[in-house]
Design a protein around this nucleic acid. Structure first.
Length: 596
RNA sequence: GGGGUAGUAGCUCAGUUGGUUAGAGCGCCUGCCUGUCACGCAGGAGGUCGCGAGUUCGAGUCUCGUCUAUCCCGCCA
């Protein structure tokens, strides 16, 4: 039986017509005589009626079906009796009277309910083992649709903007700086290995040297790092690179791209341009480089208030040039002892000695450190932090970065506690995009006693800071930009170095990589830059994270058809798995693990 | 590598201070039922309490170890 309509398509417009529907049995309601079957396909649900008065044998066959079986039904569309119309269903005004029934496949009883509400509560490992059943649930089906629409829109916009979609190799060579890589033994080159690309970074720059001018790719990337709810070993980036552009061009393009995706998928108008904030400011105000700006409780520098303090802890930090930061967790004075202990432990894990606080409770302030504060200091605190009864204020006194980082983390934890108490609500359709700009180009690595790239070694310095490279490397800002959305790092990129001499200086003088190593790893790149490299820059957006936000989930596993568990396994196919000795021999490798 | 949470029927969970035969809802099976849509009613089957040790007269419950999933730290240029 060939289908003529989908299960979502039939409405009262089709009354009187015949139709062939194919799909899965969603539910069976056998009344002894009359039997109703909901048939489901990708598009929706339609009620089938089988009446023994019409065809006794057919009605009996229908009533013996099992849920999730696949059937085809021929019948006519008719209106439901007025009092039995179901307004909760798009197809609730009609039903299809079954005349013929073809059973394509009888289903075993599924191991878990194929149902959004119940399915969401089922253990994820069971769902992943039977992912083909999990994906039947409307929520996941919808996620796949959103993912498709988003990638389609990305392709449309970038096509309009003159980009070529170009594929680059997955099999690359190992580049030990950066993420741990998946290695692939080379059969034809004994003892040598490919590495799967952790991103197409070097290839896309070569495409610019090659004169492609505008490249993009829905690029699969591979990183052998530990997993998180927003990190999978293979994931997808919207990867692109452009020649002859500056940062402003990039902001405009990505704002256009993102706004179109939100419009196409959610029918929401995202205001552009997006706000921009320098790295130093986001750290000062939010204590994190990917701030969630959907709520306030911003960090405040209270160092000036305590300029004359005799409180040893603050005095010591200020004398060493550190910072005293504070923020007001509005309405969190009823924090429990357990919650406070938990916050303190988090602060300590980030290097704090403790977590100082002031609780404004029933008209008075309570705090172990209150006795060290003068009345003037208290008054000043009350003013800048807008302390009211019921508030909880946290402090961090440390070197600037650490003080910000500690409170930035506590701010997020406090927000979660307030959400639980329903004192902080964030609109589900709040999308706070933000460009974070002017990152430092370099970070000093204490362990290795050298500078490393804050992002990657191909990021160009801000032109007016180039002179500082030798004099004051810490002060050099990079032409890097991060796109942040609701506290999630959605992507990042930069204007690249395109001058061979500058790139060589960065590698050898600043990052202190031995010249032989530079030659081995990046020699081809430096060489290419001597043959007419255009100024260029690019960006990569985390596509899985974008779709997760579009579908309102926090786990990218919900938007990847076949994701892996935290141990990197696919429970459906049971991979990875062992290989034969013969395979290992062909690849010239041995394992040190003995099979049981 | 480290910390937290969870693991009891096919699924979701309850199980008191360690004490008789481990329960519920859903699902499944059987029967009844002609307008339901989470159909209803009656009955029934279904358990290696993740696994392994230990303590104890006695362990789902306590201890240790271990496995799996998940959240987080480290890690992710």
């Amino acid at each position: 039986m060939k289908r003529t309509h989908t299960c979502g398509a039939l409405t009262d417009q089709h009354i009187g017509q015949t139709a062939n529907l194919c799909g899965w049995v969603d539910s069976i309601r056998d009344h002894g005589g009359i039997t109703f079957i909901d048939i489901r396909d990708r598009a929706g649900l339609t009620q089938l009626v089988f009446n023994p008065e019409n065809d006794q044998a057919l009605a009996e066959r229908a009533s013996r079906l099992k849920p999730e079986s696949v059937i085809g039904v021929h019948g006519e569309v008719r209106p439901r009796p007025a009092e039995t119309v179901n307004p909760r269903l798009p197809t609730g005004a009609i039903e299809v009277v079954g005349r013929e029934l073809e059973i394509f496949n009888i289903s075993d009883t599924p191991p878990f309910p194929i149902d959004d509400a119940k399915g969401d509560k089922v253990n994820e490992d069971l769902r992943l083992t039977h992912r083909y059943l999990d994906l039947r649930r409307p929520r996941l089906r919808k996620a796949m649709e959103v993912r498709h629409k988003a990638s389609k829109t990305v392709r449309e916009v970038l096509d309009e903007e003159g980009f070529y979609e170009i594929e680059t190799p997955f099999l690359f060579k190992s580049t030990p700086e950066g993420a741990r890589e998946y290695l692939v033994p080379s059969r034809l080159n004994p003892g040598e290995f490919y590495a799967l690309t952790q991103s197409p970074q070097q290839f896309k720059q070569m495409l610019m040297v090659a004169g492609m001018e505008r490249y993009y790719q829905m690029a699969r990337c591979f990183r052998d790092e530990d997993l998180r709810s927003d990190r999978q070993p293979e994931f997808t980036q919207v990867d692109l690179e452009m020649s002859f552009i500056d940062r402003e061009d990039m902001y405009a393009l990505i704002e256009k791209l993102v706004a179109r995706v939100w419009k196409e998928v959610l029918d929401i108008d995202i205001p552009t341009p997006f706000p921009r904030m320098p790295y130093a400011e986001v750290m000062n105000r939010y204590g994190i480089d990917k701030p969630d700006t959907r709520f306030g409780m911003e960090l405040v520098d209270v160092g000036e208030i305590f300029g004359e303090t005799e409180f040893k802890v603050f005095r010591g930090v200020l004398d060493k040039g550190g910072a005293i930061k504070a923020f007001n967790a509005k309405g969190l004075a009823d924090l429990t002892q357990g919650e406070l202990t938990n916050l303190t432990e988090i602060a300590q894990s980030l290097g704090a000695k403790g977590l100082a606080f002031i609780k404004a409770d029933k008209g008075q302030w309570k705090s172990p450190i209150l006795k060290f504060f003068t009345d003037a200091e208290k008054a000043a605190l009350a003013e800048v932090l807008e302390i009211e009864d019921g508030d909880m204020v946290f402090f961090a006194a440390d070197q600037w970065t650490r003080a910000c980082t500690i409170l930035g983390r506590i701010r997020l934890e406090a927000a979660n506690l307030l959400k639980k108490r329903e004192r902080l609500t964030i609109a589900p359709d709040a999308y706070n995009f933000l460009w974070v700009v002017e990152f430092p180009l370099l970070i000093y690595e204490e362990e290795e006693q050298r500078f490393v790239a804050a992002h990657h070694p191909f990021t160009a310095p801000v032109p007016e800071d180039i002179d500082l490279l030798q004099k004051d490397p810490k002060a050099v800002r990079g032409q890097h930009y991060d796109l942040v959305l609701n506290g999630v790092e959605l992507g990042g990129g930069s204007i690249r170095v395109h001058q061979p001499d500058l790139q060589k200086t960065l590698f050898e003088d600043i990052f202190a990589i031995p010249p032989e190593t530079v030659q081995e790893r990046f020699g081809y790149m430096l060489k290419s830059f001597r043959y007419g490299a255009p100024p260029h820059g690019g960006i990569a957006l985390g596509f899985d994270r974008m779709v997760a936000i579009l579908t309102g989930t926090t786990s990218i596993r919900d938007v990847i058809a076949f994701p892996k568990t935290q141990k990197g396994q696919c429970l459906m196919t049971d991979s990875p798995g062992p290989v034969t000795d013969r395979q290992l021999r062909d690849l010239h490798i041995q394992t040190l693990v003995q099979e049981d």
